[in-house]
């Protein structure tokens, strides 16, 4: 087919496998680039990631604490003070927005990672073992699924102490069942494929079947699902923070909205207080969803229409 494939002895087998992988990756990238919504989402996302990483350089964290902002005017509109004005305590909105993006993104990603971990393990185990193990695992999953999500999150968040880690935990505990069910369905479909039969006929153990055949063929779906779970996690973090259940010591977009609401920003017509976090959440969630949908279309065999 190509020169280096025809001469494996010269290049080495491992290296060729690696070249192949890189090529597969670049093929996915080419297909991704063809999707306009996916690229828009990616650009928006990159902007926010850069802002989040650059927050310490762009805005001093002193702007977050009322104790260091006593000399600032309160309720200053963007035209009067700084890039984005101040709140009722004179804290700068710009600093809160930038530092808040860090928390929102971090919690979103960390909670998603934990969600995918629990969901994948449960889904793969249930799908692969079947029988009684599947029954027990799926009943537990359904039990979590039927509990109304927000009340459970609120109860958990108030029972556990209010810290960043607990917020992540709460989000993961309440959102893994969806992932588990999706992945179990995919495992059930992969399990019936011919190559799994062939591997079993070769005498492969369950561990071998799972690690060599099931997981590699479920992985793309896990990846696509991950990008679609991030916005849900971010929204959940915002919701919990808005309800005052977030980490009180850290600025996040949800906490900004909560404080704006408490301080009566709407009555003060201080739009600069609540619009930036609201817009930020909307854009980030939209960006992740666009990326996720574009990825899903490429990676999920059931959605892809390429023949």
């Amino acid at each position: 087919m190509t020169a280096e494939v025809a001469t494996p002895r010269v290049v080495g087998r491992r290296r060729i496998v690696w070249i192949r992988r890189r090529r597969a990756l670049s093929r996915v990238w080419r297909m991704y680039r063809a999707s306009k919504p996916g690229m828009i989402g990616l650009v928006v996302l990159l902007v926010f990631v850069v802002l989040a990483f650059a927050a310490p350089a762009l805005a001093s964290s002193s702007g977050l604490h009322a104790i260091s902002t006593v000399q600032n005017p309160t309720w200053a509109s963007p035209s009067k003070f700084g890039p984005l004005g101040t709140d009722n305590l004179g804290r700068t909105i710009g600093a809160q927005f930038l530092w808040g993006s860090r928390i929102s993104l971090f919690v979103g990603l960390a909670a998603t990672l934990l969600t995918m971990l629990i969901g994948s393990v449960v889904g793969i185990a249930a799908g692969f073992f079947g029988g009684r193990i599947e029954g027990v695992l799926m009943r537990i999953t359904e039990w979590f699924l039927v509990i109304p999500f927000l009340p459970l999150a609120i109860v958990l968040a108030s029972v556990l102490s209010r810290s960043l880690f607990n917020i992540i935990l709460v989000i993961a505990i309440t959102s893994w069942p969806f992932t588990a069910r999706l992945i179990r369905a995919q495992v059930l479909s992969v399990k019936e494929r011919g190559y799994v039969d062939r591997s079993r006929a070769l005498g492969a153990s369950r561990w071998h079947l799972t690690t060599r055949h099931i997981v590699p063929n479920v992985a793309p779906l896990i990846l696509a699902n991950t990008t679609l779970t991030v916005p849900i996690a971010i929204l959940t973090e915002t919701t919990l923070s808005f309800l005052g259940l977030g980490d009180p010591s850290r600025a996040s977009w949800g906490k900004m909205l909560n404080e704006a609401f408490d301080a009566g920003a709407i009555g003060q017509h201080a739009w600069w207080y609540y619009v930036p976090p609201g817009l930020g959440i909307m854009l980030v969630v939209l960006a992740f969803t666009l990326c996720g949908q574009a990825l899903e279309e490429i990676l999920n065999p059931r959605l892809s229409e390429r023949a």
């Binding site: 087998r13 494929r193 011919g194 039969d197 062939r198 591997s199 005498g203 071998h208 590699p216 063929n217």
Partner: peptide
């Protein structure tokens, strides 16, 4: 198998597919 297309993992190279039995045993 009847259907060789289904019997080969699309993510494995031919080398890996043939070597699989050796690795299993």
């Amino acid at each position: 198998f009847q259907d060789p297309t289904g019997a080969l993992n699309p993510r494995q190279t031919i080398y890996e597919a043939v070597a699989e039995g050796l690795r299993v045993h």
